[in-house]
Design a protein around this nucleic acid. Structure first.
Length: 424
DNA sequence: TCTGGGGTCCTAGGACCC
DNA sequence: TCTGGGGTCCTAGGACCC
């Protein structure tokens, strides 16, 4: 009973909304944004939702519908979305003393003690709309899980809410009636696999889950779902993480734009991915003690299948891209088998620890390590300023003909001088 | 609806060691 | 020779999220 109140603010149809800011022709049309490699639908305009097209539908299964309804399909433009996200988060930070950026399009705010929350929510909506041109919804409640649920109500208009829903303003009776009308699958942390299992226990609605026996839930599903039930009961279990905790593992993987058979190309891909992972590693000021390399064929076709991964321990924990790349390259050579058509490769950095905790060993050349650190820092700085691929290892490849498909990507309107929209 | 992308965390089982 | 214990690492796969 700490008396905290959280807000969850998120952007409606984020990727589609970003695209619409820069292209008025997309207004009123059914628009989808596709995942990497133009694989499946990851954002939908309201017109798409009205057609009954689900999140995650593979694009190739929509070709007929697309022709029939004139659906516009855009490739993901993460440079644009990332920049728009930063603008939104910066504005939202001014609305509360503490903010947790939870994903590219949503954040939690600690709004404890702020009066007039509904009006405040409308103020937030108006400012983001005016300053960035994006529509947001706001949900308030005593725990993060309930704030997510409140946001769902704000978005669907369930509690008669018009883009803002404050659960703390409802009476116990009204709250109970409301959550009895919401499917249990809407709860944050209850996914597709859990829903049927819960339904078998006659837990169909959010209200049912809230009333479920905590001990039973814990023994059958573990501590994670137990925490969710407690959060639904207004027990504050999840803290607001104002500074993101360090990751325990860092992954970089991509599907290829076409089947890849040659080791030389897989080597380029893996070096490209490990470079990216190394950047993330240095940003959180950690070092890795091993590198996992993975490789797989396409499980969705009839080709002979092969999937393997291997852990390559590093001689000593490091954040040096060259050392990571060396391990990744040895790894891919070990698991590569000729005559398969490969679909995806990946790299995962494991055994992470803070860089300052790193033990130096007897055999390290400390001068060489210092020089290498300056090199990595310089490369990070240059790429941060002039774009990710300005300086890259030669082994990462030049043409990268294996790289993912993005047939219909819009320009980087906000981050590239050449792509700046101009008045016409 | 049997869900073609990417990322993170967790767990189970086997191998190996003390 | 079999069984017992407990730890770590590797590998595969499950589950969730956006």
């Amino acid at each position: 009973m700490t008396g905290s109140v959280f807000a969850l603010v998120d952007v409606n149809n984020f990727y589609v909304s970003c695209e619409r800011v820069f292209d008025w022709r997309l207004w009123g049309k059914p628009v989808v944004v596709l995942s990497n490699n133009d694989g499946c639908v990851v954002a939908r305009s309201p017109e798409i939702k009205a057609l009954g097209i689900k999140m995650g539908t593979p694009w190739h299964k929509l070709k007929d519908q697309a022709r029939q309804h004139g659906i516009v399909a855009l490739s993901s433009n993460y440079t644009l979305y990332g920049d728009m996200s930063r603008r939104v988060m910066t504005i939202l930070a001014d609305f509360a003393p503490r903010q947790e950026v939870y994903s590219i399009d949503e954040c939690f705010l600690d709004v404890t003690g702020i009066p007039g929350l509904t009006a405040y929510g409308h103020q937030i909506r108006a400012r983001i709309q005016q300053w960035v041109g994006l529509p947001v919804c706001v949900g308030y409640a005593e725990t993060k899980t309930l704030a997510k649920l409140a946001n769902h109500c704000a978005k669907t208009g369930l509690a008669g809410a018009d883009g803002v829903c404050d659960l703390t303003a409802l009476s116990r009776t009204d709250r109970d009636a409301l959550i009895d009308r919401i499917d249990v699958g809407e709860v944050w942390g209850v996914g597709r696999r859990l829903v049927p299992q819960l339904e078998a226990m006659r837990i169909n609605t959010v209200g049912d889950l809230r009333r479920a026996d905590v001990a039973t839930i814990r023994s059958r599903f573990g501590v994670v779902l137990e925490r969710t039930v407690r959060e639904l009961r207004e027990e504050d279990c999840l803290q607001l993480e104002a500074v993101a905790p360090d990751k325990d593992q860092i992954m970089a993987s991509r599907s290829f734009g076409r089947p890849v058979t040659e080791l030389s190309e897989l080597r380029e891909a893996v070096i490209t991915y490990v470079t990216r992972a190394g950047e993330k590693l240095r940003r959180q000021k950690s070092v890795a003690s091993s590198v996992l390399v993975s490789l797989r064929t396409n499980p969705f076709n009839d080709d002979p299948q092969y999937a393997r991964q291997i852990v390559m321990p590093l001689p000593h924990p490091t954040d040096d891209t060259l050392a990571l790349a060396d391990a990744a390259e040895r790894g891919i050579r070990q698991i590569y088998r000729p005559r398969f058509r490969y679909h995806k490769a990946g790299v995962m950095l494991m055994g992470l620890m803070p860089a300052e905790h790193r033990q130096t060993t007897l055999f390290e050349d400390t001068d060489a390590i210092a020089r290498r650190k300056r090199l990595n820092d310089a490369v990070d700085k240059i790429n941060g300023k002039f774009g990710r691929r300005t300086v890259e290892l030669a082994g990462a490849g030049i043409a990268k003909s294996w790289s993912m498909r993005a047939r219909n990507r819009t320009p980087a309107y906000t981050t590239d001088w050449e792509a700046l929209p101009t008045a016409r």
